[in-house]
Simulated assay, not measured.
Amino acid sequence: MLRQALILCALVAVAFGGTLRNSDFQSRIVGGAPAVEGQFPYQISLRTFPALGHFCGGSIISEHWTLSAAHCTINRTPANTRIVAGTILLNGGANPILREVSSIVNHPEYDSVNIAQDVCVVRVTVPFVWSPNVQPIRVGNEFIGGGVTAVVSGWGGILVTGGAAPNNLQWIAKQTITNADCRTRMGVNNERFVVDSKICTFTQAGQGICQGDSGGPLTAGGSVIGIVSWNIPCARGFPDGFDRVSHWNSWINDNARD
């Protein structure tokens, strides 16, 4: 039986048995629902500059800092990166907030082969101003086991086959599973991607991340507990993988200082 291709949540499918590539990073939520204004005030969109094309998601964690995945930003610079906040729409919206980027800090041990240490923080030049649509989220510091309901949000296609990215932010509630269960479900060919610093979710086939949600937040109890990292596209009955924020709590707080 052909082994499934694991890809980073920027999600363009990799050939069976292929090597994950930074160019493959874009993910989408399949089986989710449209968000409403103010539902995810911490959600951001990482954009190219000057085209302002969305390439990854992320979370506001303080006035100056956002949290995302290293595979989103490892080859980027502040000059060609922008952040959009305060809107649930990729294009349009009443009051989108555009910020220039002053620095990008990727985990120094980011491993593109095993998709490990997939965490970064990005600083904006002008601080965010809090409003109903722009708010920080707490950086989780408690270990989350299996059986917890968590929410993931992001932009992108909504079909298992991909499709056009919706303009409206999408979200879905998922169940966390233990890393042992995640390794079993991933199978012998892909279990190596489930390192201790990951957290996995799985509910059922037809629900999950796909191309374009990379770097986006997995949240529970008012905290961001995971960063969208990888999956087998798209919502085909395999777990979704996130970097475990509690594992990186100290690194995040040490590097996201004003």
Rank of each mutant, 00 (worst) to 15 (best):
residue 224 V to L: 11
residue 142 E to C: 04
residue 199 I to V: 13
residue 196 D to W: 14
residue 63 E to P: 08
residue 218 L to V: 09
residue 180 A to Y: 03
residue 108 P to N: 10
residue 223 S to W: 03
residue 232 I to D: 03
residue 181 D to Q: 11
residue 107 H to C: 04
residue 195 V to D: 00
residue 252 I to E: 01
residue 28 R to Y: 08
residue 57 G to P: 04
residue 47 R to H: 12
residue 50 P to A: 05
residue 26 Q to M: 09
residue 120 C to Q: 13
residue 73 T to C: 03
residue 155 W to G: 08
residue 110 Y to H: 05
residue 130 W to P: 00
residue 151 V to G: 05
residue 18 G to P: 02
residue 103 S to D: 11
residue 27 S to A: 11
residue 112 S to Q: 13
residue 2 L to G: 01
residue 258 D to C: 07
residue 41 P to R: 10
residue 152 V to Q: 10
residue 226 G to T: 04
residue 77 T to D: 11
residue 2 L to T: 09
residue 255 N to Q: 07
residue 92 G to T: 06
residue 240 D to G: 01
residue 242 F to Y: 15
residue 240 D to Y: 03
residue 14 V to C: 03
residue 225 I to G: 02
residue 247 H to F: 15
residue 252 I to Y: 08
residue 135 Q to M: 15
residue 197 S to Q: 07
residue 121 V to D: 03
residue 220 A to H: 14
residue 103 S to V: 13
residue 228 V to M: 10
residue 43 Q to K: 05
residue 31 G to Y: 08
residue 46 L to W: 09
residue 146 G to V: 02
residue 42 Y to P: 03
residue 102 S to H: 00
residue 88 I to S: 03
residue 172 I to C: 00
residue 117 Q to H: 15
residue 67 L to Y: 13
residue 144 I to R: 05
residue 34 P to S: 06
residue 241 G to W: 03
residue 196 D to K: 12
residue 71 H to P: 04
residue 157 G to T: 05
residue 13 A to N: 08
residue 42 Y to S: 13
residue 35 A to P: 07
residue 113 V to T: 15
residue 171 W to Q: 10
residue 211 Q to I: 07
residue 246 S to N: 07
residue 193 F to R: 00
residue 232 I to G: 01
residue 155 W to E: 06
residue 235 A to N: 00
residue 76 R to H: 14
residue 40 F to D: 02
residue 258 D to R: 11
residue 243 D to F: 10
residue 138 R to K: 15
residue 252 I to M: 08
